[in-house]
Amino acid sequence: MISVEYVQLMARYNAWQNKALTETVEALDEDEVTRDRGAHFGSIFATLNHLLWADRLWMARIDGWVRPDGGISESVALYPTLAAWKADRTRADARLVLWARNLRPAALRGDLTWMSGSTGREQRKPIAVCVAHLFNHQVHHRGQIHAMLTAAGAHPAPTDLAFMPEVI
């Protein structure tokens, strides 16, 4: 379904995009970043928090990271400040890249079983699907953030995978 090379590419893409979004967000006033914009999670910052929370949750399931506290409704308040969020986002992205770099094909075979807070029941899915979901979820919410940044008058960097540095 997916390959180690795909996972490595997407981990690098995730880090590249998060760095670019962070630079754009840091250039805005705090009021712009925390303003409710009618998105699913409300503000740019709430969506950034949710995305980091979800990355940490999926990697807790996939690779044994520490599970973040709370459920989806609490995910929007993972960090109270942009500086605290940025520090953990940077660490998480570096860990994802390192995990992908060391990944072996066998790790993408078999099933992953977990208790889902959103469905209230145990789930069992192919691990490759869960890894693909991790990256798809990131792209989905970064798209929302990109749209909110544009609406705030910012000019986020391009998001095209084909133009990521070092894409061969």
Score class of each variant (00 low, 15 high):
Ile2Tyr: 12
Ser3Pro: 06
Tyr6Pro: 00
Gln8Ser: 09
Met10Arg: 15
Met10Pro: 07
Lys19Ile: 09
Leu21Arg: 06
Ala27Thr: 07
Val33Asn: 14
Val33Pro: 11
Asp36His: 06
Arg37Leu: 13
Ala39Trp: 10
Phe41Asn: 04
Gly42Tyr: 04
Ser43Asn: 08
Ile44Lys: 06
Ile44Ser: 10
Asn49Ala: 14
Trp53His: 13
Asp55Tyr: 00
Arg56Thr: 07
Leu57Trp: 15
Met59Phe: 14
Ala60Lys: 07
Ile62Arg: 11
Asp63Ala: 10
Gly64Cys: 08
Gly64Gln: 15
Trp65Tyr: 01
Gly70Cys: 07
Gly70Ser: 10
Gly71His: 08
Glu74Val: 03
Ser75Tyr: 07
Val76Tyr: 03
Tyr79Ser: 01
Pro80Asp: 12
Thr81Phe: 14
Ala83Cys: 03
Ala83Phe: 06
Ala84His: 09
Trp85Arg: 04
Ala92Tyr: 00
Ala92Trp: 02
Ala94Lys: 15
Leu98Ser: 14
Ala100Leu: 03
Leu103Met: 15
Leu103Phe: 05
Leu108Arg: 07
Leu108Asn: 08
Thr113Ser: 07
Met115Asn: 02
Thr119Phe: 14
Glu122Cys: 13
Val129Glu: 03
Cys130Gln: 10
Ala132Ile: 11
His133Gly: 00
Phe135Pro: 15
Gln138Cys: 05
Val139Cys: 05
His140Ala: 01
His141Leu: 03
Gly143Ala: 12
Gln144Ile: 08
Met148Cys: 13
Met148Arg: 10
Leu149His: 04
Ala151Gln: 06
His155Lys: 10
Asp160Asn: 12
Phe163Ala: 05
Val167Pro: 10
Ile168Pro: 01
